[in-house]
Amino acid sequence: MQGITFDIAHMLAGSLVLVSFIQLYQQRLSALLNIFALHAFVLALSVAWQAYVQDAPHLYITAIIALVFKAIVIPVALRRIVIRLGIHREIENVFGVGLAMLLGICLVALSMVVMLRVTSGADPLAREDLAFALSVVLLGMLMMVTRRNAVSQVVGFMSLENGLVLAATGAKGMPLVVEISIAFSVLIAFIVIGIFLFRIRERFDTVDMQAMDRFRGEQR
């Protein structure tokens, strides 16, 4: 029985990394939002499985938050914003897709090397989870730096947070305070971002961050 529970947890965490990779090469915003919803859905499954394995019912709450809030509410809301702004077709990468994927592979390798080496004492489930979680976090960061569009930066940030939730649930018995706070912070972050996106729209007629760079305080 130990074997199969481990395998399923491993598969779900691994899929999360895979979905992070799929996010990396999405060219259009609407597709990116779909993939993000999938990302959050896989996270919800993974967290629910952890709740079952660890016999920790409070983790189901985290899973439900991930499912309802991140996989449904946020993608729907973001899609509305994107369509209202008329930018659902555009996305531009700073690097090419190939280079981004290559960098992503390097980051995953790095996190495996670091996390597997230092956690040799911990139980195997937690080890793998942490290594995958760090990969997701790093891939989220990579996405934030390679994208110029405000909406896709937000998506990158949220997939980064998904990685953190994966890490927090993998750490057995971590208090509920933290999980709720993570969900809560995403909520706040989303409100903040929402306000900002609308203000940016008011001012710039674009959500392209490159356009904003012109307004640097010191270049005039």
Binding site: M141, M144, F157, L160, F196, R199, M212, F215, G217
Partner: peptide, 25 residues
């Protein structure tokens, strides 16, 4: 809500969140 203020807030938000995320990890 000027251009500069929005850009500063956005930059602060993005970098601050990444820092905060690393700290949580």
């Amino acid at each position: 809500r000027t251009h500069e203020a929005l850009e500063a807030a956005w930059k602060y938000f993005i970098l601050g969140s990444i820092g905060i995320a690393l700290a949580l990890f």
